[in-house]
């Protein structure tokens, strides 16, 4: 319930107007959105119980590892009700053709796969916020294993407690076993954005670039 309460309001995309090239505009709009979402995500992470008890080094390491995963849980969740479109924001639905034109065909495919998988699992909002926090916590510590394990255990216990009120056997395990797909999806998205930046010179905001480079 704490995670549900601290869930940030979704951001709207600000349409880029700096170019008449619609594919480039899509990409620039998306990168601006991601940069602002990252700011919100860092503020959100601080509110997850146990996160602030981690050392600064471990906080950085978890965010550098899990930020794209956490953001993609939201995209996949927002896209549950739509047909083929991915809802990067409420006002930024992108279909396969738009993603392909923007050089993000493989990102579309991967995130769509994740969306379909989550849809089949019929996630509840409680599960979504917990998965998001777990995506952030699901990393190796640089600094202090004990405090990271306490952080992870707290989330795990919350999920188990929630699932114990439901009837589906093995649900906790199934949710946890969906995390590798999420990581794989996030890796593809990070690689695609880095490629757009390095090979095609797409300008990327400082924070987003710093977080992408941490994964390069």
């Amino acid at each position: 319930s704490h995670l549900l309460l601290t869930e940030p309001a979704p951001l709207a995309a600000n349409q880029d107007n700096s170019t008449s090239d619609s594919s480039l505009r899509t990409l620039l709009t998306l990168c601006d959105l991601l940069n602002r979402e990252l700011l919100v995500l860092i503020g959100w992470a601080k509110q997850i119980p146990g996160f602030s008890e981690l050392s600064l080094v471990d906080q950085m390491s978890l965010l550098q590892s899990g930020w794209m995963e956490a953001l993609l849980v939201d995209v996949a969740w927002r896209s549950q009700a739509t047909g083929e479109e991915l809802m990067f924001a409420g006002n930024l639905p992108l279909d396969e053709a738009q993603c392909r034109a923007a050089g993000l065909a493989d990102v579309y495919e991967a995130v769509r796969h994740l969306t379909v998988r989550y849809r089949a699992m019929k996630l509840s909002p409680d599960e979504v916020v917990t998965l998001k926090a777990m995506a952030l916590a699901n990393s190796d510590p640089v600094d202090c294993l004990d405090s990271l394990q306490r952080f992870q255990d707290g989330l795990h216990e919350a999920l188990q407690e929630y699932e114990s009120t439901r009837r589906e056997q093995n649900r906790t395990g199934r949710l946890l076993m969906s995390l590798p797909l999420l990581r794989q999806t996030a890796d593809r998205a990070v690689q695609a954005l880095l490629r757009m930046h390095h090979q095609h010179g797409i300008p990327i905001h400082k924070l987003l670039l710093e977080m992408l480079n941490a994964k390069a």
């Binding site: 860092i42 950085m60 550098q64 710093e210 941490a214």
Partner: peptide, 15 residues
């Protein structure tokens, strides 16, 4: 750490 300057600063700022 210099490479991750912005994240470092954002985490150090109080909410």
């Amino acid at each position: 750490k210099e490479k991750h300057k912005i994240l470092h600063q954002l985490l150090q700022n109080s909410t």
